[in-house]
């Protein structure tokens, strides 16, 4: 008996020590990773505030006073950044709005109604979820040539957002947990039409899911480079990622370095600000949107 108590005590003491040790290791590793994640952006911000010649002269950990000067060089330079910003905003906002509204609608159709082919369509959407847009890009561009949308049109970058299998999947899961069919039936008894029920009763219920997916769609559209670069050729139609790629073009060295850093900061700033405000919801939305193993 006495021996047993002794052993128990020993195990507890060892556990406590090992937890302290593991906690210390965890903090060290997490701090290193935090450094690894943020260091580049720290240098970005510092260099955005320094003059091109100072930047080329070497690194300094302290900011300089050239931010406004660099900004004005960028704004008055050859890159149409205001057009780029406007184009990026139009495409991303429209994509996010269309994608969430219609993905919720598709999920609603599968969730509420019982019709022939329902299971087939739901399975089909899930099966094609992983197919990347790159593998159909060739046919996509050929199609756009035929319908004359292949030159500088934003529509082919916005309309396809309506059919987003991954967003559909997230919405379907959300409806499963948040929308009992009784609500829809009650609305019918009250004489509400189906479309009206969807817009006025279902939409408010799925608002949290719409918000999360709107952010993700906005961000991925904002960051998208592959397809826009194939379609948008005129300077005033380009989005920010294409303008960034232009900085990296053959005559990279002719650019003012301060301007390069300010441009990079300018193009990632909106997303960083959105993220810092809404990070709680965004981080919470990641795991929920994935397929459960």
């Amino acid at each position: 008996m006495a021996q047993n108590i002794h052993i128990d005590y020993n195990v507890k003491g060892e556990n406590k020590n090992s937890i302290h040790r593991r906690r210390a290791v965890a903090y060290v590793v997490l701090s290193l990773l935090t450094f690894l994640c943020l260091f580049w952006f720290y240098v970005l911000i510092i260099n955005a505030t320094r003059s091109s010649s100072a930047i080329q002269g070497g690194f300094s950990p302290l900011p300089g006073g050239y931010l406004l000067k660099n900004w004005s060089t960028l704004v008055h330079g050859s890159l149409p950044i205001w057009n780029g910003l406007a184009n990026s905003l139009i495409i991303s906002i429209c994509s996010a709005a269309l994608c969430t509204y219609f993905s919720a609608m598709t999920a609603y159709a599968i969730h509420v109604y019982r019709f022939a082919g329902r299971k087939f369509i739901a399975t089909f959407i899930l099966a094609v979820m992983m197919i990347p847009t790159q593998v159909t890009a060739l046919g996509f561009l050929e199609l756009l040539r035929v319908i004359h949308l292949d030159k500088d049109s934003m529509l082919p970058l916005i309309i396809p957002a309506i059919a987003a299998p991954a967003t559909f999947f997230y919405m379907k899961q959300y409806l499963d947990s948040a929308l009992p069919l009784e609500i829809v039936e009650a609305a019918r008894i009250d004489g509400s039409g189906e479309l009206r029920t969807y817009n006025t009763i279902v939409m408010p219920i799925v608002k949290p899911a719409i918000a999360v997916q709107a952010i993700f769609t906005f961000v991925s559209s904002w960051n998208n480079y592959f397809t826009p670069a194939l379609i948008l050729k005129a300077d005033n139609k380009k989005t920010l990622p294409i303008l960034i790629a232009q900085l990296r073009s053959a005559d990279y060295l002719k650019f003012d370095m301060g301007q390069v850093y300010v441009m990079i900061a300018f193009s990632i700033l909106p997303v960083v600000v959105i993220y810092l405000i809404l990070s709680k919801y965004i981080v919470g939305g990641i795991a929920a949107g994935s397929v459960k193993g």
Partner: peptide
């Protein structure tokens, strides 16, 4: 820490590479 480690995922890949 979760906020920090997820942040790079949202950064424009082209800006990150540049």
């Amino acid at each position: 820490f979760k906020t920090v480690i997820y942040l790079p995922n949202l950064i424009m890949a082209s800006a990150f590479s540049m």
